[in-house]
């Protein structure tokens, strides 16, 4: 009875543990290969454009509406106890500490993470990754390293944009639509905002960027089973990345703030 139970636990744990192990092995080879010459600067730039610049439209829309709804909701709530003056602080702190990094990471995962898994997965099942190896090119260095570095660099950059646009969205709702004075909104924004809020938000963003890129590449890189496998890899990449972002967000916040 007890042995059967232990076996059951063993079986349930073995798969995920194996996966974490392989993910860590990939992380180590990515870190090692990013330092190794030659540096593929042009490929990194191309990926940075793909992840950063091409994600801008969705990120901007997400940021402005998040800022707007945040202002609207907190205004409605705060009005009940006469604290409308603090809306600017709520928007600024929420955007920089929490919503900027997390929402931006989730949106970019849905876009760029899915694309990474699908592209690498297709390359795997059509033997393009094998072809790279036969052409004496390390596929982890050529495919995974540039995507990993771009995620690590571009997500914080996008989060800076998200923070600014979100605060502007909040300004638009509070000042233009609800008629609070511009000075009091801006004062409320700056009064409680500290540099640490922004930095820590950006540290989180860098972690999320590295995590989603690594997980998405991992899922794509080890795809098996044809077109269906590519579909599964893409789903797996988005789900696992999103879960990792949301769960690690709590622990990073507890540790950083």
């Amino acid at each position: 009875m007890f042995i059967k139970f232990a076996e059951m636990i063993g079986r349930a744990v073995k798969g995920p543990l194996e996966e974490v192990g392989r993910l860590m092995l990939l992380l180590f080879s990515v870190l090692r290969l990013s330092l190794k010459r030659p540096y593929d600067v042009r490929i990194v730039m191309k990926q940075m454009v793909e992840i950063g610049i091409n994600s801008l439209p969705v990120v901007l829309i997400t940021a402005v509406f998040t800022g707007m709804v945040l202002a609207l909701q907190s205004y409605t709530g705060f009005k009940r106890f006469g604290a409308e003056g603090l809306v600017g602080s709520v928007v600024a702190l929420s955007m920089t500490r929490e919503l900027g990094p997390v929402l931006c990471a989730l949106i970019v995962t849905g876009r760029a993470g899915a694309a990474m898994a699908a592209e690498l997965g297709t390359m795997r099942v059509t033997e393009q990754i094998d072809a790279l190896e036969t052409l004496a090119t390390n596929p982890v260095k050529y495919l995974v390293v540039p995507r990993f570095l771009s995620g690590l660099i571009m997500l914080p950059a996008l989060v800076i944009v998200t923070d600014i646009i979100g605060i502007m969205g909040g300004y638009f709702v509070t000042v233009t639509l609800l008629g609070t004075s511009s000075t009091s909104y801006m004062n409320a924004t700056w009064d409680f905002l500290e540099a640490e809020d922004i930095y820590n938000g950006l540290i989180k963003a860098a972690f999320f960027g590295a995590a989603f890129a690594l997980i998405s590449c991992y899922r794509g890189f080890y795809t098996t089973g044809g077109a269906e496998g590519v579909g599964k890899a893409t789903i797996g990449a988005v789900v696992l990345s999103s879960m990792t972002i949301l769960i690690s967000d709590y622990f990073l916040s507890a540790w950083l703030f």
Binding site: E119, T122, M123, T126, E127, Q128, D130, A131, E133, T134, L135, A136, T137, N138
Partner: peptide, 28 residues
């Protein structure tokens, strides 16, 4: 990697890099 420079391999479905032009594939 050095040993592989002695080899050329033709894959069953050619395995061309579909994000690159023909000359970039051949000259990879």
């Amino acid at each position: 990697s050095n040993i592989r420079k002695k080899f050329g391999m033709l894959f069953q479905s050619a395995a061309l890099f579909d994000s690159m032009r023909v000359w970039e594939n051949v000259g990879f």
